[in-house]
């Protein structure tokens, strides 16, 4: 069954290439074209500035994930805040 279906439903790679390029270039054209930053990159930088203003952040404790999609993009910033973890740990000890 799987053998037969793999013959009849051979996945072609060209549509994948086309879709990947369309998404990538949509972002690159904004970034390069106007000489301005990509919105996500800008958001990332400004969010980090705000966090730094209030907390001394260890760069290793910050995880950034970005996923640029056709319909929507996701910017995920995961900051480990030192003070709060200490407090949490202290609370556990008590």
């Amino acid at each position: 069954m799987t053998f037969l279906s793999s013959i009849f439903k051979r996945r072609s790679s060209a549509p994948v290439a086309r879709d990947r390029l369309q998404i990538l270039l949509a972002h690159e054209r904004i970034a390069v074209g106007d000489g301005k930053d990509d919105l996500l990159a800008k958001l990332h930088r400004e969010i980090m500035e705000v966090i730094k203003r209030h907390i001394a952040v260890d760069q290793d404790k910050v995880q950034i994930k970005m996923d640029r999609g056709a319909q929507c993009s996701v910017l995920e910033i995961d900051v480990e805040v030192p003070g709060l973890t200490d407090r949490a740990e202290n609370a556990k000890k008590d």
Partner: peptide, 16 residues
């Protein structure tokens, strides 16, 4: 190869 879908077709490249 383009007809088999294993290479970007002319239409794809032109559209992009």
């Amino acid at each position: 190869r383009a007809a088999r879908g294993d290479m970007l077709g002319t239409d794809d490249v032109l559209e992009i």
